[in-house]
Amino acid sequence: MMLTATSVILVISALLLVWVKSIMSSIRILALQSLFLGIACFALGAQTGEAEVYVMAVLTILVKAILIPAILGSTMRRINIRREAEKYIGRGASLLLASGLVVFNYAVTERLDLMLLGSEIRTLPHAVSMLLIGLFVMITHKKAIMQGIGLIVIENGLFLLALSTALGMPFIVEIGIFLDVLVSVILISILSYRMDRTFRSLSTDWLRKLKG
C-alpha cells in the first residue's frame, strides 16, 4: 500500500520534470523524488525490521537525494550557462505526450498478470512509467545534463521495483548499483563540463559530427 502511494508520487514528480523550465529546479525535483524514495525505503525497513533495508534507505538519501543533486548543481554553477532547459518541443506538448505515454503504459501493463509475481510487485507499471518518462526527458531535451537526469529517473523507477521485490535485490548487488549510479553521475558532470568548454554550449545539437 505504502509502496503504491510512493510510486504514484514518484511518477507525478517525474511528470513534473517534463514540465519545469530551469535545469536547477529539475535537479531539485530529482532530489525531492529521491528523498521520497529514501523515506519509503525507511518506512519499509521499520515495517520489516530488516537492517539492510535501513542501510539502503540511508544510502538512497545520502547518495541520491544529497550527493548526486549536489554534484549536478555544482556542475551547473561552474558551467554558468543559461539555466533554461531547451527542448525540441514545447512544455505543454511534452507534458501531454508524456502523460499519454504513461496512460498507454498503464493500459498495456494492466494486461500482464501481475499476480504471477505476487501482490507486492504491483509497482511494475509505475516503474515502467518512470522508465518511459525518463526516456522521454532524454529524447526531448537539448541540454546534455538533462539526459543524465533522465537516466537517474529511470534508475529511481527500477530501484522502486527492486524494493517491492522481496525488499530489493541482494544487498551487495544494491551497493554495486549505487556505486555505478554515482560514478556515472560524476562522469556525466565531467563530460558536460568539458563539452561546455569545447563547444561553448551544453546543447547536444553540437554532437552531430559522428555519423554513418
Partner: peptide, 22 residues
C-alpha cells in the same frame, strides 16, 4: 578532450546506460 571524443563518450554513456538500465 576533442569535440569528437566527447561526442562519442557522451553517446556511449547515454545509449549504453539506457540500454543497461532496461
Amino acid at each position: 578532450r576533442k569535440g569528437e571524443a566527447l561526442e562519442a563518450a557522451w553517446k556511449y554513456l547515454i545509449l549504453c546506460g539506457t540500454g543497461i538500465a532496461i
